[in-house]
Simulated assay, not measured.
Amino acid sequence: MKKRKYLTQNEIDRLLEASRKGSFPKRDECFIQMCFIHGFRVSELCHLKFSDINLIDKVVHVNRLKSGLKTTHPLLASEIKLLKAWLEERVTWRGCESPWIFLSQKGGPLSRQQVYNMMKKFGSLASIAVSLNPHMLRHSCGYALANRGTDTRLIQDYLGHRNIQHTVLYTSSNHRRFAEVWQKEL
């Protein structure tokens, strides 16, 4: 049996709740929420800069790695609220003058390893049965979009996939895509 590579919406909610109980709740909740909503790879989000976010226009410029397509996504109202709370606290942190949105305690950008540790810790706190890693949030985004009935090509663009074969795994397991096949009787 293959192990599951994504989290359900209920598990995402529990993970976010657990992040609010950590040492850096504003940073961590904002990080996890943005990772899920935008399908960021961990390195993409760790290296997100102030120049990538425009709170006035309510957008984030997503610089995809792995030769992915760069995109601009709208920021949700809930994200803007979390971002503003984190940025207000961030000015008190060491390294606050750096361009990185998400800082480590030492003042540099969060590292991949720190995010892996964060996910394991919060996954355990949230009693999530699967072994968590940050990339699961990217997959969770893809599956959540497919479950909402989002077109495969739109998911492809949203996640920055150059090859649609990387996208169809999200839609192929969604049985609801066939819901209207027999809507009109013959």
Rank of each mutant, 00 (worst) to 15 (best):
Leu65Phe: 00
Cys30Arg: 01
Gly68Arg: 06
His38Phe: 08
Lys84Asp: 10
Cys35Met: 15
Arg41Met: 06
Arg20Asn: 11
Ala179Gly: 04
Phe50Trp: 10
Met1Ser: 14
His161Phe: 10
Pro99Asn: 11
Ser173Gln: 09
Gly39Glu: 02
Pro25Met: 12
Met119Asp: 04
Glu29Ile: 00
His175Ser: 15
Lys49Leu: 12
His135Gly: 04
Lys66Cys: 08
Ser172Asn: 15
Val91Met: 07
Thr152Arg: 11
Glu185Phe: 11
Gly160Ser: 07
Met34Ser: 08
Ile164Ser: 04
Thr8Val: 02
Thr171Gln: 10
Lys58Gly: 02
Arg148Tyr: 02
Gly142Thr: 01
His175Gln: 13
Asp13Leu: 13
Gln105Gly: 04
Val62His: 01
Tyr6Ile: 04
Ile12Phe: 12
Phe178Met: 15
Arg41Thr: 07
Ser104Phe: 02
Gln105Thr: 08
Pro74Trp: 01
Leu110Gln: 07
Phe24Thr: 12
Gln156Leu: 14
Arg176Ser: 14
Gln156Arg: 11
Pro25Thr: 10
Glu97Met: 06
Leu110Asp: 06
Thr8Ser: 15
Leu186His: 12
Asp151Pro: 04
Lys81Ala: 10
Trp86Ile: 00
Glu44Arg: 05
Arg20Glu: 12
Thr8Glu: 13
Arg162Tyr: 01
Arg177Tyr: 09
Ala18Asp: 14
Val115Gly: 01
Leu48Thr: 11
Tyr143Ala: 02
Glu29His: 11
Gly107Tyr: 04
Asn10His: 13
Asn174Ala: 07
Ser131Glu: 15
Ile37Val: 14
Tyr170Gly: 11
His161Arg: 11
Ser43Glu: 09
Cys35Trp: 03
Glu180Val: 08
Asn63Lys: 14
Ser173Pro: 02
Gly160Asp: 02
Phe31Thr: 10
Met34Ala: 05
Ser78Lys: 12
Asn147Gln: 15
Phe122Asn: 06
Ser78Tyr: 06
Phe31Glu: 07
Ser19Ile: 03
Ser124Asn: 14
Asn147Lys: 13
Arg4Asp: 03
Lys121Ala: 03
Met34Leu: 15
Tyr158Thr: 02
Gly123Trp: 08
Tyr170Leu: 12
Leu132Asp: 01
Gly68Gln: 06
Thr171Ala: 10
Gln156Asp: 05
